[in-house]
Amino acid sequence: MARPIWTGTLSFGLLNVPIRLMTGERRSDIHFRMLDQRDNTPVRYERVNADTGEEVPWKDIVKAFEYQKGNYVVLEEEDIKSAASDAHETVEIDSFIDAGDIPPAYFEKPYILAPAKKAEKGYVLLRETLKKTGKIGIARVVIRTREYLAAVMPEGDALLLNILRYEAELVDPEEYGLPAKEAAAYRITPKEIQMASDLVKSMAGKWKPGDYRDDFRDKLRKAIEKRLKSKGITTTVNEEDERVPEHATTNVVDFMALLKKSIGAKKRTPAKKAAVKNAATKKTAAKKATAEKAPAKKTAAPKAAAKKSTTRKAPAKKRRA
């Protein structure tokens, strides 16, 4: 079961309902890595000092605001946290409005509010009241370090919390010089409007989200499976751990399944042959070390050297294959 982002309280008036804030979306994007086509080595993004050209470790990176071109003021983490409301882990409803009053452009990201144990009564009370009155709650909520405007609304058995955009974040359509005159000014006749209306009615139906799939992702996944089956695993690279950006999505689970499927269906790939070769070479080196009966400290260096030379030779054989 998914873990809650945080556990806290849903508050309106004097009523407080213990809740868990759960993610309401599941990202299924397929992400790619950039490789150097000469040897299929991943291309890394470096955090480089603009003056020295040297890489900057994460521990030395701070956040700053550029108040003038080339002039910055550095902010501490506490500065950012203090700007948010003190009401962490609380969804505090300020007012209730008609459900249809918010234009679609304001809705940004959904979350699911789930009741804590033994808090079902207050949860269901608010849910059913919102359904009966046709209202939704406008609230403020702090997620991680930022405060958001949000709408609390019923949907089926759930209470959803939808993050809202602020008015200042939206572009006024008037900026794009849209056609604002009556239809007749664009030589649209009443008959054309009637015919278009009839076409819409003939194509009308009910919203069934399950009827729609991400065709691009499905086709792309098939293309990846085909490549894996035809070429096998072309490269395996051990990389240093890198900080993953917050909210970053990954397709590790999907690709692990594809890799297992490919490996099971194919004979040994060049990568596997190299691994077997490495294992045999290590075994031979170990036997030589035992025969010589040299002290452990003296054999450590040659053993490491043998391991290094083996590792270098394996990729060369893989390129000739």
Rank of each mutant, 00 (worst) to 15 (best):
A184C: 06
A248N: 05
T250I: 12
F32W: 10
T9L: 13
T23F: 03
M34L: 05
G210K: 09
K109D: 14
M153W: 02
V276C: 04
P270F: 03
K208W: 00
R243P: 01
E128K: 10
I112E: 10
A184T: 09
R187Q: 13
T249R: 14
G100S: 14
D241C: 07
E169R: 08
E225G: 09
A184F: 10
A321R: 11
T269H: 11
M22A: 02
P315L: 08
L161P: 08
P110G: 02
K226L: 13
A296C: 06
V252P: 05
V253L: 12
R217T: 14
A114Q: 15
A83E: 11
A314S: 14
E242G: 01
D214P: 04
K226V: 04
N238K: 15
A285G: 06
E175D: 12
P179M: 06
E66I: 05
I188Y: 12
I30Y: 01
R243L: 15
E174D: 13
N162H: 14
V56F: 06
E108T: 10
A294N: 04
V56I: 14
K307G: 07
E108S: 14
T310W: 00
K266Y: 11
D172E: 13
A185V: 00
L258W: 10
V124T: 12
A151L: 04
R268P: 02
R213A: 15
E239C: 08
I136D: 09
K272M: 12
P104F: 14
R144Y: 00
T249D: 13
K273M: 13
K109A: 10
Y67A: 09
R33Y: 15
T9R: 04
K272L: 06
G8T: 03
V124I: 07
V124M: 08
P295R: 07
G264I: 03
V43F: 05
E25L: 09
L149R: 06
I263P: 00
D218K: 13
L199G: 03
Y186R: 04
Y111M: 09
K318Y: 03
P18T: 01
A119M: 03
A274D: 03
L161K: 10
L113F: 03
S309Y: 00
W58G: 07
E182Q: 09
R243I: 12
E54W: 00
L113W: 07
W58Y: 10
I224H: 02
P245W: 06
F255G: 08
I97P: 05
L15W: 03
D98Q: 14
E92R: 15
T52S: 15
T269P: 00
T281G: 09
F65Y: 15
D157W: 01
L113C: 04
I19P: 02
A257I: 15
L178S: 07
N49M: 00
D101H: 12
S85K: 10
H247Q: 14
A314P: 03
